[in-house]
Nucleic acid binder design. Structure first.
Lengths: 318, 318
DNA sequence: AGCCTTATGCTACATCTGAGCAAAAGACCC
DNA sequence: GGGTCTTTTGCTCAGATGTAGCATAAGGCT
């Protein structure tokens, strides 16, 4: 094992030559966060128990990382992914129990598909119980916050900094709750030993939500964070909707993903002025109230908005 | 080479078991986009000719990808990186001439350092000549646009779509020029064979800017795009400024990075109301006009704004 | 002193955003 | 059939934000 500085330097200098890479040979793996709506709930495709994200090796036949992910997700599960985007690459030394160092390139994929060939759709909020704030008052204080604050106070040196992170991430005092900070929240809970996968976890009081294999819950949090941020400025929600839908269904989807309610009238105004949808002419009657018009995503905007973006009002809660 | 579907499936099923990854063993490499300001120009650290980005192998002694990048950039060049963030992971089959498949994890690093131990600071705009719009009228049409439009027209099927991408990326007609779309612009130029590294490049008329080794120009474009987007909502400019500066110097830096001018008064208002800086009490007299007050970055905001963000008005040109 | 330059302060105006009121249109109940 | 419920849909309004221009301050220079 070349761990001495001298050897490390030698390897670097070799690298500088641009010819030979004398680095470690590692196995490259693809990790997929595949998201779909099932019965109005946002779900992620998982395998086994404890749940893990579907993963597969990079093979010589794969043209690219993206192609690799798409190919085997589709083959393995029979799902077709409408949207696929690289998330982050993980290769920390301690993330594998078996001593190897798999380098995992994670992807976020969206689909409208139903039953997968293998695996199950797992509700996000079974894994991140504190992330669903729908129906809660906007000044709702998460029960985890006291435990977090206690953790912050336990280290006088870091007190202010930790306090700051908690305030912002969990939307305390003047800060709003921001759905896309899910990864920050997870990391705080991890550091505060409030999730079971923390080294020093206290089983008596933990955040609501089941653990996953390895660091997969972190990877999933990364994916959810990206998706929550992205629905605000790219028309990706539609990758999760069936072809015809009412504006209420669309809104429900956005609310389910972001975990909080939005202002109905403003939501519709935004959708309309962005010209994201067009009427199909149909109506849906069983809404429990006035029948709703049916809409369809204007596929044409994909070409434009892939680059420039759109705005959905997912910011504040009611 | 296991290219048959059966073998591929076998490998996947093995992966599904969660035990053994029978994937390809690859070498993992780190690619660094190290940015600094030199004499008011935005520059990137490059080695050799044609220029390439500094790269180094992932070694067993490195705790994480980020640590690896930081460690060897600092050792190799003597530069200390104030900011370091993962960009993207590249592993396309055709990106290496030598047949191997290096998997390259790219990072964006910012520094205020001066002369590097090895390598040189290369001005961005020598590599992306069309990206500097300072001093040009806001309705300026890039001379590349006709060639791009011709390319768009050459394929009747794809005409509309290409036209759309060009319009948005290059800020034609109603669209504004958006600095952070540099990667989109580069990709269009690549597809239109207007950069020398394109397979079918026509040497007679090319976009202004030297080529780099391999796909490094694409990686650099990714880094610049990230940085240009990021200065708008995170206080990262200060990682490129020396400790004391005038507001004009700060504005010059932002303008150099984004490649276009901003409205001075609004810029200052934004800086002030965000409380990003504090006066040092000093003044700088050789401004050519009224002396300017000196400011210093309020380091405290880093703790807050790392999470929540700030706003700099880099949007429109004058 | 008068003119140059840059720095700095302030104001007008269009736009966006968040939030509420109210009418429309069906279901349901009596 | 009328009243009441629900959800859908249209509209208004105030505050925040973004864009752009005018005006003054404060130095150097001739």
């Amino acid at each position: 094992m070349p761990t001495s500085p001298a050897l490390e330097r030698a390897a670097i200098l070799t690298a500088k030559g641009g010819r030979l890479m004398s680095g470690q040979q590692v196995s490259a793996e693809l990790l997929a966060v595949v998201v779909a709506m099932q019965n109005g709930a946002p779900t992620v495709l998982t395998l086994g128990e404890p749940p893990r994200l579907p993963a597969g090796p990079l093979l010589p036949s794969h043209r690219s990382l993206q192609a690799a992910t798409r190919a085997w997700v589709e083959e393995q599960t029979g799902l077709s992914l409408g949207f696929l985007e690289q998330l982050y690459t993980f290769a920390d030394l301690d993330r594998d129990e078996r001593g190897g160092r798999p380098i995992s390139v994670s992807y976020l994929g969206l689909t409208t598909a139903g039953r997968p060939g293998i695996g199950v759709w797992t509700n996000w909020y079974q894994l991140f119980g504190w992330e669903d704030r729908r129906g809660l008052p906007s000044d709702h204080l998460d029960p985890l916050v006291p435990a977090l604050l206690a953790w912050a106070e336990s280290e006088p040196e870091l007190r202010r900094q930790r306090r700051q992170r908690i305030d912002i991430s969990f939307g305390l005092s003047p800060h709003p709750w921001r759905p896309e900070l899910i990864l920050n929240r997870y990391e705080l809970l991890y550091e505060a030993a409030l999730v079971p996968e923390s080294p020093a976890a206290d089983p008596s009081r933990l955040a609501p939500g089941g653990r996953m294999a390895g660091d997969h819950r972190r990877v999933l949090a990364t994916g959810i964070a990206r998706l929550r941020a992205k629905i605000g400025y790219r028309p990706v929600v539609f990758e999760l909707m069936s072809s015809d839908f009412t504006l209420r269904q669309l809104q429900d989807c956005v609310e389910a993903l972001s975990g909080h309610e939005v202002h109905t009238q403003n939501f519709r105004r935004m959708i309309e002025q962005q010209a994201l949808v067009e009427e199909t002419g149909g109506q849906l009657a069983d809404t429990g109230g006035r029948p709703a018009r049916l809409y369809r995503f204007r596929r044409q905007v994909l070409a434009e908005r892939k680059v420039v973006g759109t705005k959905l009002p997912i910011s504040r809660g009611r």
